[in-house]
Nucleic acid binder design. Structure first.
Lengths: 336, 336
DNA sequence: TTGTAGGCGTTATCAC
DNA sequence: GTGATAACGCCTACAA
């Protein structure tokens, strides 16, 4: 059995209060007392019970990070930075996976998990705006939305400007002389904000350049996975007039697309240029290396942690939108 | 303020005991009572407070997964499976990163975290055998060692047979006609078990084939990262007699090595064959696709969760070693 | 500066 | 089958 505060107090011949003060690094404790208490703590190998402390204080020091899949490189990079940023604030991070399941997402926010287990939630959602609004009212849990969702004024929110990011990527393709520019990642359902925004950026860049929008060049992708990218690219290449460039809504889609292009006997960037979004490390070592729109996951994580911890301390803070910077990174896959 | 058990009891005109029974799905509750209580629970939107429950029961339903870096593909794949397997047992998973820091590793096991916050720990360690033994005695926390550590009989342990895995990889290279076979991943310090075991497998395969072991062909790598793989491969290629094959101790090293080989103007597998370990998805889409030794992360995760939950329920279980299967996967990078 | 006591919300031990 | 009541281990007014 682990030693309790009471054990220490008895052994050291002091009150529990004093022991508690020593443990919590409280101010007014005489040197003599402190030393004696510390000795006994060491002797008994006492550690405060965090569960009891949490029950008393109402805080657990735990945050939840909710992502679709932790093994998607973008999310694992985000998790790395979130865990590190949280540690700097004295928080630890629980990782929950929704597996692209809307119901599970809603459950995680409104359901059994809107309990007192976490002090806050960092949520990288798939859900629609409507659903977010719907579930928003009942919870008082500090929540920060991560990634790429429209700001609806009800939640703290850290994201890049998706429309601009997509626009920048496509404008780069146009600037390098491409004219038949496909897109992979539009969502079959109209519910998702991110694909909509990126589609908007894609189309606006084309329009600005006076290029007609060809709906056959926009391919959906359900999960932003390599497999989806492969499939979509293969379909594009099988069409009558094939594209000379593809804007992929994620680097992972791009990795799959690149493989499909090679399997079709074509060259990158000579026959088809490729650009993605996320700047995962994989794209720096691939052949060719992958041009992309870089997202600063460390920045996103730090801002998110700053917001959620601020809200934990001050629940009535007005929600704020933080726009994270993005940057075009040109590598071999779009070099001319 | 969220409703408590007492609130529900008062409103439903029953005792807290009865409410608790209903919530816990306990057996002996009359239908009438149950219905009335459930109504009030719904009315008040009551959720049991997990912290209070934990204090009382001594269990948190939380597991810790300790890995060097969550954004290393192997670890994020492992985390995915661990989280899913844990969920099937009613547990949630906290992810801690040690960042290749020995002190942090030891701290996480013996230190402040050997508290009552977790019911158990899944630990993918870097530490030496000696250190593991040293820290082992004081803790009663159920711990399962994951990945590739020698079984020392003191902990539950789930891992592949590293010596055989390495042997199989190198034997495959030999069988495909390679004779100057390099290795990337040997550790500069003698402390790590995994590199030692893989080095042993590498050397035994060479010896069996009557190939002399050339120490200049064994390159160390500190972090099993792409950057380390790139660097080590570049060094190998700069040497007088360059290798015709490289066994990389991880797929990530292999991804870096492949890029280095291309940057040197050589072809894979024509000039140099490459094989890794882990079977990360990235290697299925790379060009060339990467031959590897596949580890079954789902199996490892399920076994680990099964062990740790069993030990939580029955602390005195004798530690057991589970050897996870591995399989050679031949892809383009070693095709002849 | 230190001691005492009450309660955080739940489950478990007693009675009935 | 159900109702009161004591812990679980800690923090913190309130006293001293």
């Amino acid at each position: 059995m682990p030693a309790t505060l009471r054990d220490v107090a008895e052994r050291a011949q002091v009150s529990m209060r004093t022991v508690s003060n020593v443990v919590s690094g409280y101010t007014h404790v005489s040197e003599k007392m402190r030393k004696r208490v510390l000795e006994v703590i060491d002797e008994l190998d006492y550690r405060p019970n965090p569960v009891a402390r949490s029950l008393r204080t109402g805080r657990t020091g735990l945050l939840a990070l909710v992502v679709p899949e932790i093994d998607v490189p973008y999310f694992s990079a985000l998790a790395r930075d979130v865990i590190n940023a949280a540690a700097a604030f004295g928080y630890r991070v629980m990782v929950d996976q929704t597996g692209h399941d809307h119901d599970q997402e809603r459950e995680l926010l409104t359901g059994a998990d809107r309990t007192m287990l976490f002090d806050g939630i960092l949520f990288s959602p798939l859900v629609t705006k409507a659903e977010l609004l719907e579930m928003s009212s009942p919870t008082r849990m500090p929540i920060v939305l991560l990634g790429e969702h429209e700001f609806d004024g009800r939640y703290d929110h850290v994201a890049i400007d998706n429309v601009r990011a997509a626009h920048d990527a496509v404008a780069h393709l146009i600037a390098s002389g491409r004219t038949r520019i496909a897109a992979i990642g539009a969502q079959p359902l109209e519910e998702y904000a991110t694909p909509q925004q990126r589609t908007a950026g894609y189309e606006s860049a084309l329009s600005e350049a006076g290029i007609d929008i060809d709906p056959r060049l926009a391919k959906p992708a359900a999960h932003y996975s390599r497999a989806d990218g492969y499939r979509a690219a293969a379909e594009l290449l099988a069409q009558s007039r094939r594209p000379d460039a593809i804007f992929c809504f994620s680097d992972l889609l791009a990795m799959g697309a690149m493989r499909a292009i090679f399997d079709a006997g074509l060259s990158i960037p000579e026959d088809v240029a490729i650009i993605g979004v996320d700047d995962i490390e994989e794209g720096r070592y691939s052949r060719p290396s992958l041009s992309t729109v870089s997202l600063d996951t460390a920045f996103i994580a730090e801002q998110a942690i700053a917001r959620v911890t601020a809200r934990i301390d001050e629940p009535e803070l007005p929600p704020r939108e933080v726009v994270a910077p993005h940057a075009l990174v040109v590598r071999e896959s779009t070099a001319h």
